Computed example of a mutant assay.
Amino acid sequence: MGTAIVAAVAALAGVLMQTLISDRRARAERRRAELAAAARGFLGAYVRFRGQQYRKIRARRAGRSDTDETIDARWTARDELTEAIGALHTATGDQELLTAVKKARLLVFALGDAAPRPGEVDEATVADIGQQAREAHTELEQAFNQALYG
């Protein structure tokens, strides 16, 4: 009788252990999938907002002011970037990664600041910040890859 009880307890412990391991793996996979989705969302929103900033710069070079449509498009892209950053904050607590995201966000904002008025574009700043923004994008792709796949 004692042997049967020990065998039953061992079997239950084995099942419990397997369940705990499976649950832990499933949670880790859900977190990884959530981070992957947030990373894709951020990178896409970053590219779209950067594109809107370059459209603003192109218009300023041509001496054009914003229209309601261009303002709306740029603010929509900015809102999407802000939402994507929020998703990243809920998907990871990796402060190094979030700091890199903040740096990229500040760069893309500064890009638009280099062309404040029609006919007024600081070309050196556009070139410098544009290069930094592209490098930040590449660095973030690599950081997300490292965070997701080690």
Rank of each mutant, 00 (worst) to 15 (best):
Glu69Trp: 08
Ala45Ile: 12
Gln18Met: 09
Ile5Lys: 05
Ala13Cys: 09
Ala59Leu: 15
Arg25Tyr: 04
Thr67Gln: 06
Leu98Gly: 00
Ala136Met: 03
Ser22Thr: 13
Ala147Val: 09
Val101Gly: 03
Ser22Leu: 12
Ala28Pro: 02
Leu107Lys: 01
Met1Tyr: 04
Met17Arg: 06
Val47Gln: 14
Ala124Phe: 09
Arg24Cys: 00
Leu106Arg: 07
Ala45Arg: 09
Ala73Asn: 05
Gln52Ile: 10
Ala127Ser: 11
Gln18Asn: 05
Arg74Gln: 15
Val47Phe: 09
Gly86Asn: 03
Ala91Thr: 00
Thr92Arg: 02
Glu135Trp: 01
Lys103Gly: 02
Asp72Ala: 15
Gly86Gln: 04
Ala124Pro: 07
Gly2Thr: 06
Val9Ile: 15
Val108His: 05
Ala136Gln: 05
Ala36His: 06
Phe109Cys: 03
Gly44Phe: 05
Gly119Asn: 05
Val9Glu: 05
Ile129Asn: 08
Val6Ala: 15
Arg74Leu: 15
Glu139Phe: 04
Asp72Trp: 12
Ala62Ser: 14
Lys103Pro: 00
Ile71Tyr: 10
Leu98Gln: 01
Gln95Lys: 10
Leu16Ile: 11
Leu98Thr: 09
Gly112Cys: 04
Arg134Asn: 14
Glu120Phe: 06
Glu135Arg: 14
Thr90Asn: 03
Gly130Met: 12
Gln53Leu: 06
Ser65Gly: 13
